[in-house]
Design a protein around this nucleic acid. Structure first.
Lengths: 249, 249
DNA sequence: CAGTGGTCTAGACCACCAT
DNA sequence: TGGTGGTCTAGACCACTGA
C-alpha cells in the first residue's frame, strides 16, 4: 500500500478502506467473528483511528458490521427480512402478530401527529407502546396514537398503565371496521427512549414507518414504528408467500 | 453554558447541540436559509468543529439540513412524499410514470441478484438504468435486471445503448402478464455511480428498494432503486387517494 | 481490572463553488 | 481568489464490558 499513487481522482482514504474491508469480510471472516480492535486496524492500514472509524461506520450503516462498546466489532449476519403490512387490511394487535404490547398512557401527541390524526393541538390521545422482536432480538419500537373517539367503548379504566391497558385499547380499536391504511417509510435517528428499547445508542439510524389507519371515513389511529436500520430489511407484499423467503433471506 | 454541570447521565455534547440546533431551526430559520458556517457555529457553541459537524450530520440524516461543499449549509424543506408501488400491479415503464429511461446494457449481475433472478452466476442479462425526478430534483436511480428469457421478442438490436434501447426492453417486458410483485426496503449507502446521478457524495445514505416482478410462475425481473434518504419519504398504499397528500406533505 | 468502542480537541490541507 | 464543507491527523479522556 504505497501512499504516493498518482490518482487523478483521489478517492478518499476512508472510502478505499471501506472497499478493502468489505472484500476482506466477504473472503476472510465468518459471521459473528470479532475483528481486531480499532487502534490495531488503524495502525495496520496506516491511518488515523478517526479515518478507520469513518470506514467502519459506513459498513455498520450497510449492516455488514456490528459494534458494541466494551466488547468489540463483529461481523454482522445478513439483515433480517421483517414483514410490514402483515395482513393487508388488519388492525394492529389482531391475532398473534409479532408485536408485544408494553404499556399505554394518555398524552398530547406532537403537533405533526395531531395534524395527521385530525385532533386539536394539545388534545390528549391514547398512546400505546409496543415492541417487536424477531429471533429474540428487538427490531422495532412503536407508538400507536389512538384518539378517544376511536375507542368509545373503552371504560375510563382505573387500570393505570402497563400491558393490560395497552391490550384493552387495541381490543376496542378492533371493534371498528378498517377501511384502509396508508404507509410511509423514511430515514430517522433513534430517540433516546426508542434507542434504549432497541438496544442501540441514541441517534442510531432507524427506519421510521408511519401507518395511518382509516375507519368511518376518517383517521382512526396513527402508528409510528421505529425499526433498527442496521439489522432489518422491511418487506412488503404477499408476506406469507413462498417467494418472500428468498427476498427475506 | 457552564461546562461543569453535574449531570448524572452526561449527554454527549453533539447530542445536546443537535437538540439546540433543531429547536433553533424550528423557531428562527426559514426553509432555504443559509446557516453560519461550521467554523463560526463551532466557535459560537464553544466546541471543536468536528463535534459541531457530528450534530450537523445527524440533522442532515433526519432531512432537516442540506450541506453543499463550496456553498454552505441550508435549511432543508420537508421531505417529499414519493409514491412507491404506484399502480398495484403494473410493470415498470407503463403509462407516463415518474421514471425516465437512461440506457440499457447487457451485463452479468452481482451474485446476490443472480440468485434472485434465478439465472446462472455470470449469465448476462439486460440492465436498464432509469432515473426518477420529482419537482425537478433527482430522487432515485434504478437498475432493472431483465433476463433474456423475459423478453423473447426483443430483437438482437444493433441499437447499442441509450434511452431508446431501454424503452425497447421495457416495451417487451410489458408483453408478459404480471402475476405479482414483492418489495423490500433497507438502508444503504450510495455507490459512486448512483451518487453522481443523485447529485450526492459517494456513501450518502440512501433507501434501497428491491422489487421482484413475477410472471409465468417465476421471477421475470428485479429492480433495485436507490432513493435519496435525505430528501425522500417513501409512500405506500392507495397512492392517488386524497388522503395520501396529507401524509406525503 | 484491562480492553473495547464512543466522544472530543485543535489543528491542517483539500475539493469545490461563486465571484 | 476567498470562503465553504469534506477529509485527515495524533493525540486525550470517558463509558462500558467482561474476566
Amino acid at each position: 500500500m504505497g501512499t504516493t499513487q498518482l490518482e487523478s481522482v483521489p478517492e478518499p482514504k476512508y472510502w478505499h478502506l471501506k472497499t478493502v474491508l468489505s472484500d476482506a469480510l466477504d473472503s476472510e471472516f465468518a459471521v459473528g467473528e470479532i475483528l481486531p480492535n480499532e487502534r490495531e486496524l488503524a495502525a495496520r492500514f496506516g491511518v488515523a483511528r478517526a479515518t478507520l472509524r469513518q470506514a467502519l461506520e459506513q459498513l455498520e450503516l450497510e449492516g455488514r458490521l456490528q459494534r458494541r462498546r466494551g466488547v468489540g466489532t463483529t461481523v454482522a449476519p445478513p439483515r433480517m427480512g421483517v414483514a410490514v403490512a402483515d395482513a393487508e387490511h388488519a388492525w394492529p394487535g389482531t391475532a398473534a402478530d409479532a408485536w408485544q404490547p408494553v404499556d399505554s398512557t394518555e398524552e398530547a401527541p406532537p403537533a405533526a401527529l395531531a395534524r395527521l390524526l385530525g385532533t386539536e393541538p394539545g388534545q390528549v390521545v391514547h398512546v400505546v407502546r409496543r415492541a417487536r422482536k424477531t429471533r429474540g432480538q428487538p427490531v422495532a419500537a412503536e407508538l400507536l396514537y389512538v384518539p378517544a373517539d376511536s375507542v368509545p367503548g373503552l371504560a375510563p379504566l382505573d387500570a393505570p398503565a402497563g400491558p393490560s391497558r395497552a391490550r384493552a385499547v387495541l381490543r376496542e380499536l378492533q371493534q371498528l371496521r378498517l377501511e384502509g391504511q396508508e404507509r410511509a417509510v423514511e430515514l430517522g435517528s433513534a430517540r433516546a427512549d426508542d434507542a434504549k428499547q432497541l438496544d442501540r445508542l441514541p441517534g442510531a439510524p432507524v427506519l421510521l414507518v408511519t401507518t395511518r389507519y382509516f375507519a368511518d371515513g376518517r383517521t382512526a389511529a396513527v402508528a409510528v414504528a421505529t425499526y433498527r436500520a442496521d439489522t432489518c430489511r422491511l418487506t412488503f407484499g404477499e408476506s406469507d408467500g413462498a417467494g418472500v423467503r428468498l427476498l427475506a433471506g
